[in-house]
């Protein structure tokens, strides 16, 4: 891995953030909401409204507003929430940390289930076990998160009463209670990814199993165990990194819905709240934070892949 390649990747992350910031700013500018009215209420005098507009720079040309917003955002200042009056940045960072916990646990659970499942299905290709897992994963990818979440809620929280239905408890307060509250959200977010990733692991493994070098390994009389562990696994699991990186997009989308359903105050719920309240600075900050998270995650995956797969040429 050359430094040139690394620099290029970092440059692309920066460019992505720039494009996303323009897009987010442009979309939120179209919002049919007057920030001054949102801030002061419907009954404010025209003079007061004009003064606030002046203070917020709402009379400046749009590109100048963008420039002010971007330069401030780069120093970590996303302005104050119109809803609570609090600075947006710390609020979003706290929310992000909760969402990252949810995302991380979901990815871990997903990997723990999807990889063995995909391998198992591939090794039993065409047999009952393969067909059953294939059918289940079909259902998994075809149910939107809110349906999965609702079904899990009905079964695990309502009928069986095994788990608390909604709410959030910080891990520092009561660790086990906190985890219990996270089980349903994590399960929901994982389901769709397990279904998707296990299908990909299956097809990657089947490709590897049919490759010349696996045939060669078998014809060299190597033990089946070592063919599987040393030759098949390594080659079949490398592409999974890329697949998981691509799924981070779905993951973030899923988190928005899941946090809303389970009343988990993460970045997704903050965004929904902001959108409902037309809280411009919060929407902008939330969307940008999410996009940056995605860009960083996929870049990290690229780097991990590059470190693990020596074949990639960086030219």
């Amino acid at each position: 891995m050359s430094t040139g390649w690394l620099l290029r990747r970092l440059f692309l992350v920066a460019y992505t953030v720039l494009v996303v910031s323009v897009l987010v700013f442009a979309i939120t500018q179209v919002l049919p909401a007057d920030a001054a009215v949102t801030l002061l209420g419907e009954n404010a005098t025209p003079e007061a409204l004009a003064a606030v507009r002046d203070r917020l720079g709402l009379n400046d040309p749009i590109w100048l507003q963008y420039w002010h917003w971007l330069t401030a955002a780069l120093t970590g200042d996303f302005g104050h929430s119109m809803r609570t009056g609090q600075p947006v940045a710390p609020m979003m960072l706290t929310a992000l940390s909760r969402s990252l916990l949810l995302a991380l646990l979901s990815i871990l659970l997903m990997l723990a289930v999807a990889v063995p499942l995909g391998l198992w299905a591939a090794l039993r290709q065409g047999k009952a076990a393969d067909l059953v897992t294939g059918f289940i994963s079909y259902i998994g990818v075809s149910l939107p998160e809110f349906v999965t979440a609702t079904l899990l809620l009905i079964v695990l929280a309502d009928w069986l009463q095994w788990l608390p239905a909604t709410g959030y408890v910080p891990p520092g307060e009561d660790f086990w209670d906190s985890m219990a509250h996270l089980v349903l959200p994590v399960l929901t977010v994982s389901v769709i990814m397990v279904a998707h990733v296990s299908r990909m692991v299956r097809s990657e493994t089947i490709d590897v199993l049919h490759s010349d070098y696996i045939r060669a390994a078998r014809l060299k009389g190597l033990a089946p165990r070592s063919v599987l562990l040393r030759h098949v696994l390594r080659n079949a699991l490398l592409p999974v990194i890329t697949i998981v990186a691509l799924d981070v997009g779905y993951l973030l989308g899923g988190i928005i819905v899941v946090e809303e359903i389970f009343a988990l105050p993460g970045i997704g719920r903050q965004l929904i709240v902001a959108i409902t309240a037309r809280d411009l600075p919060a929407i902008q900050a939330g969307a940008l934070v999410m996009a940056v998270t995605y860009a960083v995650a996929s870049t990290l995956a690229d780097i991990a892949y590059a470190l693990l797969d020596r074949r990639i040429r960086y030219d």
Partner: peptide, 20 residues
């Protein structure tokens, strides 16, 4: 690629919130 860094659902949410 840069636009794809915004998750599909988030982009849809943002657009709906400004379109109505």
């Amino acid at each position: 690629d840069a636009v794809m860094a915004i998750p599909g659902l988030l982009l849809a949410l943002l657009l709906v919130s400004s379109l109505g």
